[in-house]
Design a protein around this nucleic acid. Structure first.
Length: 278
DNA sequence: CCCCAGTCCTGCGGGC
DNA sequence: TGCCCGCAGGACTGGG
């Protein structure tokens, strides 16, 4: 489930495509339902052929590939999408392949097992219209503690649910929300408006620490093995998870609590009731 | 303002 | 051994 650390790892990993020219583009034939591709393949290809990649960016959980001709490809991996330079985990789920020339790499792949992701081509100057600030908030890595508190401090939602709201801040998903709140020693069920400024500073510091550490370890590859970096290698931050998917296990922080799983907004939340009482 | 259920989609693992 | 079913959930939508 690519969240900010995984998507940032993808962004960095496909850096070698900068300077490459797109010389061919196709969607491999398979029995799967097609993912969302916009515009349709013909127009998509027509606008990209011959274009030279100038820069790789990230918008929350999306990877942006900019070209010299003012086009931007927006890769949105959702649950199981990968942006790859190397051979994919399997050939059956390659959704889009770009052939490249003139650089260090010869192709860029979008692979997606479940196919919930999408690839959208936008004019670079239309990015802000397509992703206005009221739809995608400030990046979770760079948001200030003050801005975080301003944006969420009056909300009556549970903080874990609020942290995952991409309009408030962009990049935090289900896995890292649990890990961040464990570091901050805040209960995931606590309502935002009940937290004071010291709490928000702790949440903010944990946000930065957890996301930065996860980037350093190139993200989390869970037991299903889906997530991979651009070279089809596993991340290793899963070895540092303190609560996620550890229901029933002993808390690694306090050594006395047992990790509890609960459901918030139809998603699994994990926490230690001893470390995170309120 | 906030919550909930439904939608998309495929693979996996539990239960029988 | 094989089949069915529930579950995983990010982003989005519509209704309450």
């Amino acid at each position: 489930m690519p969240e900010l650390p995984e998507v940032e790892t993808m962004r960095r990993g496909i850096g070698p495509v900068v300077g490459c020219r797109i010389v061919a583009l196709h969607t491999p034939r398979n029995s799967l339902k097609p993912i969302r591709l916009a515009p349709r393949l013909g127009a998509f290809r027509a606008r990209l052929l011959g274009q030279v990649v100038t820069e790789i960016g990230r918008l929350g959980k999306r990877v942006l590939v900019h070209t010299a001709g003012g086009e931007t490809m927006v890769f949105e991996p959702r649950m199981t999408g990968l942006v790859l330079l190397a051979d994919p985990p399997d050939g059956a789920h390659v959704r889009l392949e770009l052939q490249l020339s003139g650089g260090d790499v010869s192709r860029l792949l979008y692979w997606d097992r479940r196919g919930l992701g999408s690839v959208v081509l936008l004019r670079t100057d239309e990015l802000l219209q397509h992703f206005p600030p009221d739809r995608v908030g400030p990046d979770a890595l760079t948001i200030s503690a003050r801005d975080l508190q301003t944006r969420l401090g009056t909300s009556r939602r549970a903080i874990k649910v609020a942290l995952m709201d991409q309009r408030a801040l962009a990049g935090v998903g289900n896995l890292y929300a649990s890990e961040i709140l464990h570091f901050a020693k805040v209960s995931p069920a606590q309502m935002c408006h009940r937290l004071d400024t010291a709490d928000w500073r702790r949440v903010h510091r944990s946000l930065r620490q957890v996301l930065r550490a996860a980037i350093r370890y190139e993200g989390s590859t869970l037991n299903d093995g889906t997530y991979r970096n651009a070279l089809n290698q596993q991340g290793s931050y899963q070895a540092h998870h303190l609560v996620y998917a550890r229901a029933g296990a002993e808390c690694l922080t306090c050594g006395s609590g047992r990790i509890v799983r609960m459901v918030q907004a139809q998603r699994s939340t994990f926490y230690c009731p001893v470390c995170q009482p309120r």
